[in-house]
């Protein structure tokens, strides 16, 4: 299948890319990894008249800890997160999610930020970033701003960003002394989208009590969802079986799945409960130093 014709631009600086987007308005789409956009173009579900390819802009990839946060550059590929020693040691939630996105070949090309702004509710990074309380650094016609992840997703395939905006990176809170996380994904086969997936992140204080909790859900709503009642069920408590059970049930309540060939509404909702409990148990073990 052949995509519709378009004009191609490969700017070498962010300013040039922003000018191109400003000049072409709605006509233009940003191309990063292209692992969602190019399939959509092949099916002619997307027919942008202009593509602005960011891959020639230097310095937009990489995962680093700096100034008290974790920074993921916008052109960072999933595989780079998966292979990062820093991420493996300190951010298990990110490592686990990166390892189960699509398949290994797609992971070599697709980007974290591109996946986020694609806003597919079955995308993995949205749930992870909701659980982490991430912020996106966005450059647009009016300069730079930070967009909290809670304000990103509008509905399926739609974000609050404007056509002239470019995400330049993602900022996450730095891992605390006693923090842990896990990503539990149920998929039919490698490369399939999640039937259901749950991202969990916990921070414990010196007494082993949850000082912060984040729970994000994949593929059970019009967008990735944050299960706030489930988070509240954990904060101020020790993450024991009773607290995890209550949180998992609250997470299932927060889900609003639709039935498809991956499962019924009831099945998916119950899988949210099951996967939330598994993810929270592992996150708690990790935060408690057992991971």
């Amino acid at each position: 299948m052949i995509p519709a014709a378009f004009d191609y631009h490969a700017p070498t600086s962010l300013d040039e890319a922003l000018s191109l987007l400003a000049a072409h308005g709605d006509e233009a789409k940003v191309l990063a990894g292209g692992q969602s956009l190019i399939p959509m173009m092949r099916f002619r579900l997307a027919e942008p008249g202009v593509l602005v390819d960011l891959n020639h802009i230097e310095g937009m990839a990489g995962v680093t800890e700096e100034d008290g946060h974790l920074w993921i550059g916008a052109l960072t590929r999933h595989a780079e997160v998966e292979r990062s020693d820093l991420v493996r040691k300190r951010y298990p939630l990110l490592h686990e999610a990166a390892s189960v996105i699509a398949d290994p070949i797609v992971r070599n090309r697709g980007t974290v930020a591109g996946s986020l702004v694609h806003a597919d509710p079955a995308g993995d990074w949205g749930a992870v970033m909701l659980a982490c309380g991430a912020e996106l650094e966005v450059h647009g016609p009016d300069g730079q701003r930070m967009v909290p992840i809670d304000e990103l997703f509008v509905t399926t395939f739609m974000t609050s960003l404007s056509p002239g905006d470019i995400v330049t990176g993602i900022k996450l809170p730095i891992a605390g002394k006693r923090s842990g996380g896990a990503y539990e994904k149920l998929e039919r086969k490698v490369g399939d989208f999640a039937t259901v997936a749950v991202a969990a992140r916990l921070e414990l204080d010196d007494d082993g009590v949850c000082s912060a909790a984040g729970i994000g859900l994949t593929a059970v709503g019009a967008t990735n969802l944050r299960a706030q009642d489930a988070e509240k069920a954990l904060i101020g408590k020790k993450p024991d079986e009773a607290a995890i059970d209550a949180a998992s049930r609250a997470a299932a309540e927060a889900a609003s799945p639709t039935a498809d060939n991956r499962g019924s509404v009831e099945y998916k909702r119950d899988m949210v409960r099951v996967l939330s409990a598994r993810a929270l148990r592992r996150a708690a073990a990790h935060a408690g130093g057992e991971g």
Binding site: G34, I38, P39, R42, N55, P104, V106
Partner: peptide, 27 residues
Amino acid sequence: CDTTNCGACTVLVDGVPMKSCTMFAVQ
């Protein structure tokens, strides 16, 4: 497959496996 699923079109780009059906030649 033409749907970014099967990997039959895989080539190495600077030594890294990529699906050549999910990249434009110009890239």
